[in-house]
Design a protein around this nucleic acid. Structure first.
Lengths: 213, 213
DNA sequence: TTGCAAATGTGAGGAAAACTCATGTTTTCA
DNA sequence: TGAAAACATGAGTTTTCCTCACATTTGCAA
C-alpha cells in the first residue's frame, strides 16, 4: 500500500488516477508532500488546509502536487490509508491469540484504551475521521477498515461460542466496533472527564455483550 | 426558534448575524429559500447545493439570500434546527409517561423504529446529519439535541432506578442515545437488510442496558 | 557516450462557487 | 406625507481548486 497514491472515488465518480512515483527523487518528494499535509492538518484541520500551502511547505510546485494526487481529498485519503494499515496490524495482533472469555475481556479493554489514547494524541487522525461522513471515499475506507477490524472480533467470538449463529455474531461485532469508533469521536469532542466516562461506559457495555450472552 | 435565522458559528468564529425578517413579505421569502434549499439537498446533497441555485429556485436574488443567511452553512443549520425541534417534541412525548421497565422497553423500541424510518425516508435529514461531524456549528447543535433527548431517557431511568448513581445514569443515557444516532447513520449507508439487522442488534443491546443492570 | 523517450517539475492562468456592496425599491410609522 | 428602516438586486470581487503547455531531469538502449 506504500505506492498507491492513486486516490479513491469522490461523489461516486472515480477520480482520474495519477502517476505513482517511480524514481527515488519523486518518492521523496511525495513523502514531503504528505508530511506537509499532515502538519497543516494538525495545525488547522483538513478543511483549512490549502493546496498551495501544502506545496509551499513541501518545497514543491503546485503542479507537482497534482502530479501525484488527483485532488485534495486524495492527500487526506492517502494519510487515512496509512493510519488504517497501522491500526489494523495492531488490532489483529491484540486479538489473534484470545482463547477464552477472560482473555477477550483483557484484550478488548486494552484495545479500547490504546485506541482512545491514539485519538487523543493524534490531531490528524482525529480530524480525518471526523470528516469521514462527508466524503464518500473516506467513508468507504473507514467502512472497509471497520469491517476488517470487526472481522478479528468476529473470529474470536466464533471461537468462543461455536454454537451461536455466525451471522448474528458478525452483526454484533461490526456494530460494537462501529459504536467504539463513534464513542471515540464523541469522547474527544467533549470535556476530557466526560470523555473518559463515556469510553468507560462503552467498554462496560461492549464487554457485557461480548463475554456474556 | 422560528425567526432565528442568525446562524451559528463556524471554525470557532461567530458568523456575522444577519437581519431577521420582520415583514410579512420577507418572512415568506425566507420560507421559500429554505424550501428551495431543502429540495436541492434532497436532490443532490448539501455539498452540491449551490447558493445561486437556491436563490434562483426560491425566486429571489443571491443578495436576498445573504440578507438573511450569513453563509451557506447557516441555511443548513436552520433546516437542522427545525428537525431537532420536531423530533424532540416527539421523543419527549414518547418517553414522558413511562413508569415501568416494560413501558420503557415498548417506548424505546418504538422510538428507535420511528427514528429509523425517519432517517430512511428523509434524504434531507440524512444528508444534514451525515455532514454533522465536519461542521462545528452543526456538531454543536447535534450534541445539544442529543443531550436534550438523552435527558428524557435519563429522567425515565432515574424514575425506574432511584437507587442508582445519577451521574452514571446520565452517562449511560447519553451514550445510548449517541450510539443510536451512530447506528442510524451506519444503517442507512449499507444495504437495507444489513441496516435492519444492525438497528435490531442496537435495540437489543440498548434495551439490555436500559432495563436490566 | 549519446540521444531519445518517459518521468518529473513548474507556475501562470482558467474555472467555479461563495460572498460583498453600492444602489434602488418598498414598507412602516410618527 | 415624508423620512427612516427594511428589503431587494446582481454585477463584480475574492478565494481556492485544479489544468496545461512547456521546461528539465532521469533511465536506458544503441
Amino acid at each position: 500500500m506504500e505506492g498507491s497514491t492513486v486516490s479513491g472515488s469522490q461523489d461516486g465518480q472515480i477520480a482520474l488516477p495519477r502517476r505513482a512515483p517511480s524514481q527515488q527523487r519523486s518518492r521523496e518528494r511525495v513523502e514531503r508532500m504528505l508530511a506537509a499535509a499532515s502538519a497543516l492538518i494538525a495545525e488547522q484541520g483538513s478543511d483549512a488546509m490549502r493546496m498551495g500551502e501544502v506545496a509551499e511547505r513541501a518545497g514543491v510546485s503546485i503542479g507537482s502536487l497534482y502530479q501525484f494526487f488527483p485532488d485534495k481529498r486524495a492527500i487526506i485519503w492517502a494519510l487515512a490509508e496509512r493510519y488504517t494499515a497501522e491500526s489494523q496490524a495492531c488490532i489483529s495482533a491484540a486479538l489473534a491469540d484470545v482463547i477464552d472469555a477472560e482473555g477477550l475481556r483483557r484484550a478488548f479493554s486494552e484495545l479500547v484504551d490504546i485506541y482512545y489514547r491514539l485519538f487523543l494524541a493524534s490531531p490528524v487522525m482525529r480530524d480525518i475521521w471526523s470528516g469521514t461522513q462527508a466524503d464518500k471515499a473516506l467513508r468507504e475506507l473507514e467502512l472497509a477498515d471497520s469491517r476488517a477490524n470487526a472481522d478479528f472480533l468476529t473470529a474470536v467470538l466464533k471461537r468462543l461460542r461455536p454454537a451461536a449463529d455466525p451471522a448474528a455474531l458478525e452483526t454484533t461485532a461490526f456494530l460494537i466496533w462501529q459504536m467504539g469508533e463513534a464513542t471515540m469521536r464523541l469522547a474527544i469532542s467533549v470535556e476530557r472527564q466526560e470523555g473518559d466516562d463515556l469510553v468507560a461506559a462503552y467498554k462496560r457495555m461492549a464487554l457485557r455483550e461480548l463475554v456474556s450472552e
